[in-house]
Simulated assay, not measured.
Amino acid sequence: MQLLDELPMIYAATALVFICAETKNGPQGRLFPIGLASWLLLTTLFVSITGGKIQFYTFQASFGILQLAIIYFTTTLHQGQKPQIQALGMQNESTWLIRRAIGVYAFAVTIWLIDLHLCEFVNGVGSESVLKWNPQLHAWWHVFSSTGVYFTTLLVAYQHYIAKGLRPSMYLWNGFAPALTLDASSVLKAAKKLH
């Protein structure tokens, strides 16, 4: 069951790395996606057939490398796209998205580390716990890490749209969840370029 938690995290992060790399550097040809798919296959097999600390550290290393790659790509794209966004007279919403993605994800990792290393002191069970109730930290880790992934996905999409010459903007869907929309005139211009 742990693999059903961890492997989708690796798959989603790999998809974001692929989009970021192609957004920053243009199409990478066939070898890049084949290399990523091969790496995913090997990681899936290795994580599936091992257990204990080997499995734990393999997942952590793989996911950590992917996260660092996403941070690298999104921050360099952010810096590189600033002049283009200013020239279009747009508000640079990627700054807001970067802050939210990193902030929420850092909070989630903090919760996860507390749960991982201090569980017996904060789980509300047993004589060593300083709490009288269980705050369900692992469940909150999932909620906040998923929220961080959502903000990261919005950021990657925003940067991809900018790179394609479109004009994305953010709005609150149902007054609650940040979402992206595209300026219709920029979509029409992009479509005309394809023809």
Rank of each mutant, 00 (worst) to 15 (best):
A101N: 04
T43P: 00
F56E: 14
T23G: 03
V47G: 00
V109A: 08
R100L: 11
T44H: 12
L36T: 02
S62D: 08
A101V: 10
L36F: 06
Q67S: 13
L40K: 01
K53I: 11
T75A: 06
G35V: 06
A21P: 09
Y72M: 08
T110S: 10
G35W: 09
F63C: 04
A87R: 14
T58H: 01
S48Q: 01
F73P: 04
F18S: 11
V109Y: 11
A108K: 08
G51S: 14
P33H: 05
G35R: 08
F73E: 06
I19C: 00
T43C: 12
L77V: 00
F59T: 05
Q55A: 05
Q86D: 15
I111Q: 03
N92Y: 12
G89K: 07
A37V: 12
I70P: 08
K24Q: 15
I98T: 03
H78E: 02
G29C: 07
L31D: 08
E93Y: 11
A21F: 10
M90H: 12
W112G: 07
W39D: 07
A61S: 12
A87W: 11
Q84R: 11
Y57G: 05
H78A: 01
L31K: 12
L41C: 13
I65L: 15
N25A: 10
G51M: 07
G103N: 02
L77Y: 10
F32Y: 15
Q55H: 04
T110F: 13
L97M: 05
L16R: 07
F56P: 01
F32C: 00
G35L: 07
Q86L: 09
I54W: 02
Q28W: 03
I71G: 03
L40Y: 01
P83Q: 04
S94Y: 08
L68F: 04
L88E: 13
Q81I: 00
Y105P: 01
W96H: 09
Y105D: 07
V109D: 03
K53D: 08
G51Y: 09
L45W: 10
A87S: 13
N92S: 10
T58I: 06
R30G: 10
F107E: 06
I65N: 02
S94N: 07
Y105A: 02
F56W: 12
Y57C: 05
V47K: 02
P83T: 12
F18L: 14
Q28G: 13
I65K: 04
R30N: 13
Q60V: 09
G29N: 12
C20R: 04
I54E: 04
Q67T: 13
F73R: 11
R100Y: 14
I71S: 05
Q28K: 15
I114Q: 07
T23I: 03
